[in-house]
Amino acid sequence: MVKKRKIPERKCVVTNEMMPKKELIRVVRNKDGEVSVDPTGKKNGRGAYLTKNLDVIVEAEKSNILNRHLNAEVDSSVYDELKKMVENNEK
């Protein structure tokens, strides 16, 4: 019998849904308080996950939920990068 590998799941901070890590985008705050998008999911720092969905990213930007989760000021360029990633994924 082949043991099925456990798929790591993370919770989207906007929808509060548990989803496989690969279906989410990680935003990370490093020790210096810089917030960036982490496509690899391996950067050091405090991470927050968002569903790869434009509506979710727009909602996160409106509600400033990432600022609360990461205890940092999230620059609008981070949201722009997230939107670009999602738009590229949908093609």
Score class of each variant (00 low, 15 high):
Met85Gln: 10
Ile57Glu: 03
Glu90Met: 13
Lys91Gly: 13
Asn16Lys: 15
Arg5Phe: 01
Arg29Pro: 05
Asp80Lys: 07
Ile65Cys: 04
Lys6Asn: 13
Glu9Ile: 09
Val78Cys: 02
Pro39Asn: 04
Glu73Lys: 03
Ala48Trp: 02
Arg46Gln: 12
Val74Gln: 01
Lys83Thr: 08
Glu9Leu: 10
Lys3Pro: 01
Gly33Arg: 10
Lys84Thr: 14
Leu82Ala: 03
Ser63His: 06
Arg10Lys: 14
Val56Trp: 01
Lys42Pro: 03
Val78Trp: 03
Val58Lys: 04
Ser76Lys: 09
Ile25Ala: 01
Val56Arg: 14
Asn16Glu: 15
Asp75Ile: 06
Lys11Arg: 15
Lys62Gly: 10
Ala48Gly: 05
Asn44Glu: 12
Gly45Ile: 05
Val58Met: 02
Arg46Ser: 11
Thr40Val: 05
Ser76Val: 13
Asn89Val: 07
Glu59Pro: 02
Arg26Gln: 10
Thr40Gly: 01
Gly45Ser: 08
Val2Asp: 14
Ser63Pro: 03
Asn67Met: 04
Ile57Met: 07
Thr15Lys: 12
Lys62Cys: 00
Asn67Leu: 01
Cys12Val: 09
Lys21Pro: 11
Glu73Trp: 02
Leu54His: 00
Asp38Ser: 08
Met19Ser: 15
Ser63Asn: 10
Val13His: 03
Asp75Pro: 06
Glu61Asn: 07
Lys31Val: 12
Arg5Pro: 14
Pro20His: 12
Leu50Glu: 03
Lys11Asp: 01
Lys6Trp: 00
Ile7Ala: 14
Leu24Pro: 05
Gly47Phe: 10
Ile57His: 07
Glu81Trp: 03
Glu59Ala: 00
Leu70His: 04
Leu70Ala: 01
Lys62Tyr: 08
Lys91Pro: 00
Asp38Ala: 08
Leu24Gln: 05
Met19Cys: 11
Ser36Lys: 04
Leu66Lys: 07
Lys62Thr: 11
Ser77Pro: 06
Thr15Asn: 06
Lys43Glu: 00
Cys12Ile: 05
Gly33Thr: 11
Met18Lys: 15
Asp75Trp: 12
Val86Glu: 04
Arg29Asn: 10
Glu17Leu: 09
Arg29Met: 10
Gly45Ala: 09
Lys91Asn: 11
Ser36Val: 07
Val58Arg: 01
Asp55Ala: 03
Glu17Ser: 12
Tyr49Trp: 15
Glu23Lys: 15
Glu87Tyr: 02
Lys21Val: 15
Gly47Trp: 04
Asn67Ala: 05
Asp55Gln: 02
Glu59Val: 02
Ser36Arg: 06
Asn53Gly: 04
Arg26Ile: 09
Asp32Arg: 15
Lys22Pro: 03
Pro39Asp: 01
Ile65Glu: 08
Met19Asn: 11
Asn64Thr: 11
Glu87Gln: 08
Gly33Ser: 11
Gly45Asn: 10
Gly41Ala: 08
Lys43His: 02
Arg46Glu: 07
Thr15Asp: 08
Asn64Met: 13
Asn53Cys: 05
Thr51Phe: 07
Leu82Lys: 00
Tyr49Asp: 02
Glu34Cys: 08
Val28Ser: 06
Lys43Thr: 02
Asn71Phe: 09
His69Leu: 11
Arg46Gly: 10
